[in-house]
Design a protein around this nucleic acid. Sequence first.
DNA 1: TCAAAAGTGTTTGTGGTACACCCATGG
DNA 2: CCATGGGTGTACCACAAACACTTTTGA
Lengths: 230, 230
Amino acid sequence: MSHEQIAVTVDVVIFALRDNDLQVLLVKRKYPPYEGLWAIPGGYVQADESLEDAAARELREETGIGVGELETGATVPYIEQLYTFGDPGRDPRGRVITIAYFALVPAPLVIQAGSDASDAEWKPVRPLPQMAFDHARIVQYALKRLRYKLEYSAVGFQLLPPVFTLSALQRAYETILGETLDKRNFRRRILQAQVIEQTGQYQTGEGRPAMLYRFREDAVAEVKARRLFP
Amino acid sequence: MSHEQIAVTVDVVIFALRDNDLQVLLVKRKYPPYEGLWAIPGGYVQADESLEDAAARELREETGIGVGELETGATVPYIEQLYTFGDPGRDPRGRVITIAYFALVPAPLVIQAGSDASDAEWKPVRPLPQMAFDHARIVQYALKRLRYKLEYSAVGFQLLPPVFTLSALQRAYETILGETLDKRNFRRRILQAQVIEQTGQYQTGEGRPAMLYRFREDAVAEVKARRLFP
DNA sequence: TCAAAAGTGTTTGTGGTACACCCATGG
DNA sequence: CCATGGGTGTACCACAAACACTTTTGA
């Protein structure tokens, strides 16, 4: 039957903050089709692994970061299913559908991609380099989802090291959203939300030392949307 | 290779408001596995059709309703990709992943399911009957998404006939959300949102005649979420 | 003592929520 | 004239947004 021909892959859009910029981990294609263009890391789903396992495996293969689970059920680093892309013709070699995931990895934990086994490199999301298949569309979709989630949940912390200053957190939000935020309002809101707590440590450097904070794992990190109807 | 064994299906969770109740269209399984239990309508993705086309085909086969596209890019009736389920073992016959969609169909347009070719029936979402495979989980996930979308977008209109009274609209929202809403606040908010307009017609019946409204297709039917950070 | 970054409050406006009565029609 | 459902306004409170100066340190 015709449906048996379909190949199933998992692709993972991996974001990190590097050099004060939102970057995505891409691999350069060595063979046709699209030789020399950039692609999202991915691979075939094996017969005995779940989609989530396949996505976690891809993430580990490219970054060296293993996926763990917290008591809350959330994963570290953050990974979630994004969308499934399956247009006929999206791969010239045959019918391939891909379940796309997106992942957020904390900057300092990132194993330097491209150093040895992997040929992956971090690339800024804008401008995005020329990409293979429909992968530009997938990255754009992931970016849209990231910005959206940033507004009503606390995923932003997943891109920061375990302890961070409020200024670093604000810079992270400004980098991803592409807009500047008011310092006083930002600090008031995030402290009110009770999603972070002081560590008691300070970070020194240029200027006045800054309090270091950590994310509270037990925090209820969702905000109610303003409902269209009461 | 092991990845060639994977079969790909599309399942569609079809919601409608019937008998003042939120109902879902299910088919009774005639053969093992799970013979006699209820399942979401679905089928294999054909080699030459997109996932959206496959979902639209399933919807049409079960309800007789064709999927069209508006100038805005939105579809009528409403259909969107929900999630992809692919755990090994979710189908005892082999590795099958399913891309689940959910659809909202307007009550009066519904072709009576179960009347001829189809063996589908409308079932209330609560209590949900005993279901085959992981389909109970899929319906629960679709319901969660529907409730969530209802709060910040205008998908609710997709479940109503082309013209409707404000009371009918409010009943629809109350049915889906499972809570009662204040009439004055509901009316003020929905009129302020400018997503509906008067038709000039009235519906008569018991009690005072009610103004009939229609949905404004050009309406911006999304509400900004209250952002966690300013 | 200067540069650089951290930290801190108040005011004003908008929108959410709670709440009770009169109106128009058909029987 | 009465039962049934349709339709209307206001007062209070909480939160979002705009806005500028002082503090602490290292060089």
